[in-house]
Amino acid sequence: MRRIFYLAGFFALLVLLSACSAPRSRMAMQEKTAIDTETGVIWMKNANLANKPLPWRADDNVYAFIQNLNKSTFGGYADWRVPTRDEMTSLLDYAKKTGKYKVEKVETWPYQALRDLGFEDVRDYGYWTSTRESSSQMYIADFASGKVTVKPDDKLYYLWPVRGGR
């Protein structure tokens, strides 16, 4: 009887220890945003607010969308911007880590891991960063592969506005 009691106590201790050592989520989810507690970057909860991919150099482009967001003080703020290459890389690294990324398992890909965290409408496609490589190329974050690579700036990609950080 005593043995059973000790065993139960041991298991209870194990459960308690594992709960305490479990990694806390880096993202503090709010109503419309999520705060990255490590970088200070505030991400929109909806990763596709424009509801379509946007061009960089054309009418109704990324610039115009950000301008409108700030004019309308979306979420109570007027300093929304396009995330930098480093900010996107940091988010992708985090998504791969929490989703235990394996290339052969689609359910572990960054876009899926971020959806599981509570982000909405994260697309398995390229997202704009604000970092330019040349006069015609920019860094694009791919939420399927988890890589940030250089691509021509005349294509359409999704926009995930951020504020704060830096």
């Binding site: 960089w56 482009n61 610039y63 006069s135």
Partner: peptide, 9 residues
């Protein structure tokens, strides 16, 4: 007309 590098018209 065109767009600057940061997409501004």
């Amino acid at each position: 007309s065109g767009w600057t590098d940061d997409g501004a018209p």
